[in-house]
Design a protein around this nucleic acid. Structure first.
Lengths: 223, 223
DNA sequence: CGCGATCTTCACATTCTCGTCACCAGCGGC
DNA sequence: GCCGCTGGTGACGAGAATGTGAAGATCGCG
């Protein structure tokens, strides 16, 4: 939210370049109205302090009172930069303060940093389950299932299959699979043996594990 | 961390006024050494970019590589304030950038704002009793029960089991368990011995504590 | 300083895994 | 069909990972 049209547009452009989806508002009221209609709160709010109607500080206060928005990251940028302003604004519940004039790149970097942190929290159990067809690899439990039933793999077999499923659709070279197994100086053919054993243990799901002649192996969803 | 003695002291004083407990270092190496000896990571790190020996950027890189510290808030303050510096620093994993010269009150306000957010996350699931099957771990009282009756564990055994139960269902590496115990310069096999002892003390509930060959240990509800 | 509790290391047994090899099968080119 | 090359596979010995008992090493405490 920012009352100067040019600045608002500029910021928007820079954010889009980071494949973010900014929604811009010229006034606090417009923003709050929009917000009340959203199902999920936005990932982050950029706020100018000097706004017509409701001031930025009032917006922060209003947001922080509502439990739905009390965890939403707020970045404040403003030309009002006396020490008191900064302290007060942060005290109200803003997360970061950037002084105007700021460089767009800086703003974007700060936004990305804040989102990274928020993401880390939200998706704490991040991505640790990979699937390919009826195959699932749980990298937290180190468990592989094929068609629902667990498959008992040795550590090396697990590491090979996990890498292949994580990269499903792309051929992985024996060299890289060797590295995944452990920094050994073994002959590349070791992988062949492991793959054979994996196939036996997978049973029907083995048809997802393909050989790419003279290149390596790959896992594919279909067929 | 800040190489100018006066500034370091000044910042420390201001932080203490907020009933925080700052620990100051004049060099990156001193800080990292101290950090490796701490059981729990500090709540927040204030970092100057221009340091002798290891630069602030190197410190950030080093910290973010370790999972124990990848969530630790980092505030960077520096006179190196070109746009590129700010963007790079935030990109490395810092959370906030403050330009020198900064007002101490601003720094403190920013620190408090960051801590508020980190606190909200940490204490959000203020859960202190974890269970897995007939096992319960009360992290407030430091008491473990198996099938209702209390189990008498040594401190190290408790820490290991607590971590495993908190993360039930996921494999925890010996390395991470070692870190939980506190000693980092011990042989990883120490964990094996502790686990053996824990198993004996758990009796029937020991069947919940599994070995994941070549990966670590894990606790699972079922089976 | 002595004592007990706890931690760490070590040694050994056991079980499981890995890498290698030899040989066979499949494929494509001719 | 023949040949050369690449991949599949069964078997085996070397070595790794783990469980565990016992012997120092440390620590905290009276």
């Amino acid at each position: 939210m920012e009352d100067d049209d040019d600045i608002r547009e500029l910021i928007g452009l820079y954010l889009q370049r980071e494949s973010l989806e900014p929604v811009a508002f010229a006034s606090s009221v417009a923003f709050l109205t929009w917000l009340s209609k959203q199902k999920d709160p936005p990932d982050l709010v950029i706020l100018d302090l000097m706004l017509p109607e409701l001031s930025g500080a009032d917006v922060i206060k209003a947001l922080r009172k509502q439990s739905a928005y009390d965890a939403m990251p707020i970045l404040v940028c403003s030309a009002k930069a006396t020490e008191t302003d900064v302290v007060l604004t942060l005290g109200l519940g803003a997360d970061t303060y950037i002084r105007k004039p700021f460089n767009p790149h800086e703003l974007v970097a700060q936004v990305v940093a804040m989102l990274r942190r928020a993401d880390a929290r939200r998706s704490a159990p991040s991505q640790h389950v990979f699937t390919a067809g009826q195959l699932t690899v749980d990298t937290a439990r180190h468990v592989v299932t094929a068609g629902g039933s667990p498959v008992d793999l040795t550590p090396s077999e697990y590491r090979i299959l996990a890498l292949l499923v994580e990269r499903k659709g792309t051929v992985v070279s024996r060299e890289e699979l060797l590295r995944a197994v452990g920094e050994t100086d073994a002959v590349e053919r070791v992988i062949d043996v492991h793959v054979t054993n994996i196939r036996h243990k997978l049973g029907a799901a083995a048809r997802l594990l393909h050989t790419s002649r003279s290149f390596g192996y790959y896992v594919d969803e279909d067929q």
